[in-house]
């Protein structure tokens, strides 16, 4: 077992982490399977009136591909309360791990190397904690996903824009293809766009109402501080799709094409 794994185990079991008092921090060098995303900016498509147009994002580590069925199987083997047969209905709806053949059996619908889907946010977070990792924030995920194949700003790369848009128009393959085979982006991260949707830690910060027609002027009575969320850069359609998608989720939802990947902070 590598020293890194031991460190992760130590982190995962520490009470401080459980209480959120200490955030998992990465050692140097970058652990296998992770990609270092340099410090940069995130430009949210929806933002509060008082918020700046860009938000600085510190350098961090992002898993190079989504978590696979085989990896999630190891998690539920070690954590019986996250098996589909035992999971609390508070933390996952009835579709939880629905592609699997059984509580501890992947089967033909869930190839070992394909991304795990139909996992709730609670389950994804529990997996990340078990690994000594965490889920990326919206800002981090979007910062990494804004990169094209060849350039840091994907909006300026036609081939990248087309690939992302095209994915919205094609039905999902069943079973899902293996994770980690997509074309790497500028940072070397794969599958951010054309395989599945992904959970982020703070998915519930998008202050849109359930009624889309009401969102143009968010009802002040429904949201404290509302009426001040506005849109920018209406040209980035996929980013809008993701923002809308996230705002429609509840943390216990399990969705056939929604998975996740993990992140890790870099020590300052």
């Amino acid at each position: 077992m590598s020293p890194f794994r031991l460190l992760l185990l130590g982190l995962a079991t520490s009470a401080a982490l459980r209480l959120g008092a200490a955030e998992p921090a990465a050692p140097d060098p970058v652990p296998p399977g992770f990609v270092r995303i340099p410090a940069g900016n995130y430009s949210p498509v929806l933002r509060m009136k008082d918020e700046p147009e860009t938000v600085p994002v510190a350098a961090f580590l992002l898993q190079g591909r989504p978590v696979t069925n085989a990896e999630f199987l190891a998690f539920v083997q070690a954590n019986p309360k996250w098996r589909s047969s035992q999971v609390s209905p508070l933390f996952a709806d009835t579709g939880y791990l629905g592609e699997w053949a059984g509580a501890l059996e992947l089967g033909p619908g869930a190839p070992a190397d394909s991304p795990v889907v139909r996992v709730s946010w609670f389950a994804a977070r529990a997996y990340a904690r078990w690994k000594g990792l965490r889920l990326p924030t919206t800002a981090e995920w979007e910062r990494a996903a804004a990169a094209g194949y060849e350039v840091e700003d994907g909006q300026t790369e036609a081939a990248f824009r087309d690939a992302v848009i095209t994915w919205f128009t094609v039905p999902n393959l069943r079973p899902l293809p293996a994770a980690g085979r997509g074309r790497p982006n500028y940072f070397g991260v794969r599958d951010l766009h054309t395989l599945i949707w992904e959970w982020v830690d703070d998915f519930n910060t998008a202050l849109t109402t359930g009624e889309s027609r009401a969102d143009s002027g968010l009802e002040r009575d429904l949201f404290c501080g509302a009426g001040s969320v506005g849109a920018r850069d209406t040209g980035n359609y996929p980013a809008f799709m993701r923002a809308g998608y996230r705002s429609s989720l509840r943390a216990s939802y399990t969705v056939p094409n929604l998975g996740f990947r993990c992140a890790l902070s870099l020590s300052p």
């Binding site: 008082d50 910060t205 501080g225």
Partner: peptide, 25 residues
């Protein structure tokens, strides 16, 4: 724990730079 409870209720919440919160009521 606050985040977990907010998620179980379905409360949307966002902390701004001043430390104030926008949240569903």
């Amino acid at each position: 724990d606050i985040q977990e409870l907010a998620l179980l209720f379905g409360v949307k919440v966002k902390r701004d730079a001043r430390g104030q919160f926008s949240h569903s009521n």
